[in-house]
Design a binder for these strands. Structure first.
Lengths: 213, 213
DNA sequence: TGCGAACCGTACCGTACGGTACTGATCGGG
DNA sequence: CCCGATCAGTACCGTACGGTACGGTTCGCA
């Protein structure tokens, strides 16, 4: 309603006040987990009233959905226009992608939202799960798909099924790190080895799907 | 206390009555998620009293820990004594391992327990997460390590760091399937492609770490 | 200046959960 | 045959949450 107000906040139909509230809610979630994400707590942290929360987001689930959409709208991935690829620049781009992927997955907001969606997967028919999948994964997946396709067009990569190749790249890069972090493994130690991990995964990936070896 | 009673149920110090209770609790968790795992619900489902639950397990967290230990003790992995390996039998063993890995990860009890531990990761200092990691992952990881080591000793595989090789194998096999299932993706459709997935992942793994290509 | 909309803060309600206490029934051992 | 221990069933308590209602305040606008 009152469609004149939308201040083009971040792609969503949210006022900046509502965005600030969602920001506080995300912070609460990151700091204290799902248990800390109470309507009263959000209202207190954001200096707003519970009544406003329910007017804006309708429901606790609506609020959580808005949090996911809000966060996703902030992490727009800009895909580098990767034309004129040679073998070395493809490898560089792949390594950058791999590092970005690890950084995103290790981000505390991403971890908290994934934990939240996973915790609710059994009760809400995985509505949040699909939303996370669509708004988060799909983005970075498309970036990878474009990169792989460009590599193939340049004769540097060879594969039949792009999804299969992307699956291999994803697996080589992430392995079981994401799950370990979701389970609470301290991420501080791991982040230092991201670069090495990324380089080595890309090297393996090129050994599998590259043409120049 | 009263250490004479332990009936050697499944490696834990549990009577079979307590095991039956944990079984019901797991069933509740699988069917309804964490929200359905209430002390009253467990007592009703298992025809026992809440007082007994607290006497046996001390606490809701203790009960959940007991559930994890109980389930882990049931899924003992027997590692095939893999001596006299040739290239073909190594590949067969690897494929069997990959399929087993996918089946375990896609099991509904495994998924439910992982969801539960992930949901609690932020509030309990990841105690449950470490427990799952230790009791579940470590088992199948050791089986894989033994297989890889045997392959290397037979001159069929070459790698410096066994953990690194195992990480690559795990990533190629699992990719992001585990997370998708944790987020609620329907597992029924996926299971049919496990075999193909496993074979292809092992093929890639051997291309990376095998000596005969 | 007066009006109405939006909104904050808080009080409130119903419910559901974790945990405890009590009662009565069952059962094995002396 | 009785005693003590164990346990099922239930009632109970304190707490905390989701959601609603209400009084007071700010602010844009006519």
């Amino acid at each position: 309603m009152t469609a004149a107000i939308r201040e083009a906040n971040a792609g969503e139909g949210l006022t900046e006040r509502q965005g600030a509230v969602l920001e506080q809610a995300l912070r609460l979630l990151v700091d204290g987990g799902e248990k800390a994400l109470t309507t009263a707590g959000i209202a207190r942290a954001a200096n707003c009233s519970k009544e406003s929360l329910y007017k804006w987001f309708g429901d606790r689930d609506g609020l959580i959905s808005a949090m996911i959409g809000f966060q996703a709208s902030k992490v727009r991935t800009q895909d580098v226009a990767a034309r004129a690829l040679d073998a070395e620049s493809l490898e560089r781009h792949l390594i950058v992608f791999a590092k970005d992927l690890l950084e995103v997955l290790a981000g505390d907001v991403s971890l908290a939202l994934n934990r939240l969606a996973i915790g609710q997967a059994s009760r809400d028919g995985s509505k949040l799960g699909h939303m996370l999948q669509e708004r988060g994964r799909r983005q970075i997946g498309r970036r990878a798909a474009a990169l792989l396709e460009a590599g193939r067009k340049a004769g540097l990569l060879t594969f039949d099924d792009a999804d299969e190749a992307y699956g291999a790249l994803y697996g080589l890069v992430v392995s079981d790190w994401h799950l370990k972090m979701l389970l609470g493994e301290e991420a501080g130690e791991m982040k230092k080895s991201f670069s090495r991990k990324a380089e080595q995964a890309v090297s393996s990936f090129l050994a599998l799907y590259g043409t120049k070896r």
